[in-house]
Write a protein that binds this DNA or RNA. Structure first.
Lengths: 196, 196
DNA sequence: AAAAACACTTGACGATAATCAAGAAAAACA
DNA sequence: TGTTTTTCTTGATTATCGTCAAGTGTTTTT
């Protein structure tokens, strides 16, 4: 089974979590996707450029990061397959992206252009519904992320990550994790030694 | 001009920012709205109950808050008219809400039930498109909120609020603002005295 | 394999904010 | 209007985290 076929199966499964797309509609959707290969550390979306594609991550995981005015790097999110990713703000507004999205391992990724997606929205109400449902889910995830910041200490959030994604934590450099948790690498190192 | 008429004009204007709804479609939308009066400090959405209505705020402003496991209250957001508000997570999933939404002044508010909105989505693709666009905007706002946390100090965020919404800041009790900024009331008081 | 670059840990110190506590100012109420 | 309650300010103390710096361990490069 080829890479792209595996990805398509995962995409079909993912979509079916949200709504029942009949075969012709799914084919219409699929016909507009391309497959791309990304290497470890390569950027899927780059700061300063318009994110003109929506990506479907069927495997692997990515890191969202950006630079503060003072030049320091901030990891704002990790995303684990499967799911759609891009710089949504850039994609929706078609304005230059603030964030970078970086692959944390080699992976093949499906993607569709903004133009093609808008055409699909115009012609296939079911696909527009999928867009609405995915946007709603993206909002829910974002709100959850925000609440975890407001409610939980860096230590709580670290322990949660360890429990939820143990296989990934091992592969994420501590400095990225620290930034994601909103502390310095030194502080995270101390959290680790405390909670061993 | 009656209160409800003013609200409808504001709603029509607001919707037209996102897409052109022709008169019959707008009438279909409007036919499903009710108008409610809320007093200062009254709750529009209550923790523990399912948010089964979407509200359109044509005037005034509201506070989002919830309680941490330790019992302390956290103000997670303020929202200023015009716009649609509800506990989106609760509304979308039709599960009990974590957050409370509290009116900060007396106001009349339009609202539509979850059931009616879903019916409109099923029957009017343009209204479903409006739903998609509003969800996208809600996501963008949420991401912006998250980034302001990651990038800016409480002092920066306070000064930004003062610049952006000076007329409201005056009316928001300091303790709510402090919690929103993620600091204690004492610290915000000191920020204020520093930056006068 | 040696050298260099990078990632992580640990300690000392200083900055910042939380906590505790008291009092002043403002708002709500009788 | 005077009283009570709530909100805000200010000071002293404590705890936490960031910064700086040194040193260890690990990976990458030549």
């Amino acid at each position: 089974m080829k890479n792209i076929d595996k990805s398509i199966v995962i995409l079909r499964n993912f979509v079916s979590r949200f709504l029942a797309l009949d075969a012709p509609d799914f084919e219409k959707l699929l016909a507009n996707f391309e497959i791309d290969e990304f290497k470890r550390k390569e950027l899927i979306v780059e700061n300063g450029k318009v994110a003109d594609r929506m990506y479907f991550l069927s495997e692997g995981f990515v890191r969202f990061y950006h630079f503060k005015p003072d030049g320091s790097e901030v990891t704002s999110d990790f995303y684990f397959a499967p799911g759609f990713i891009t710089s949504f703000t850039s994609f929706i507004l078609q304005k230059p992206s603030i964030v970078n999205i970086q692959c944390l391992e080699q992976m093949s990724v499906l993607s569709i252009s903004h133009k093609k997606l808008i055409e699909l929205y115009d012609n296939y109400p079911k696909i527009e519904r999928l867009g609405r449902l995915l946007s709603e889910q993206a909002f829910i995830a974002s709100e959850k992320h925000l609440l975890s910041f407001l409610n939980d200490s860096p230590q709580d959030r670290y322990l949660w990550l360890c429990k939820e994604y143990p296989e990934y934590i091992k592969n994420i450099p501590l400095q990225y994790l620290a930034s994601y948790l909103g502390v310095t690498p030194e502080t995270l190192s101390r959290i680790r030694s405390r909670t061993l």
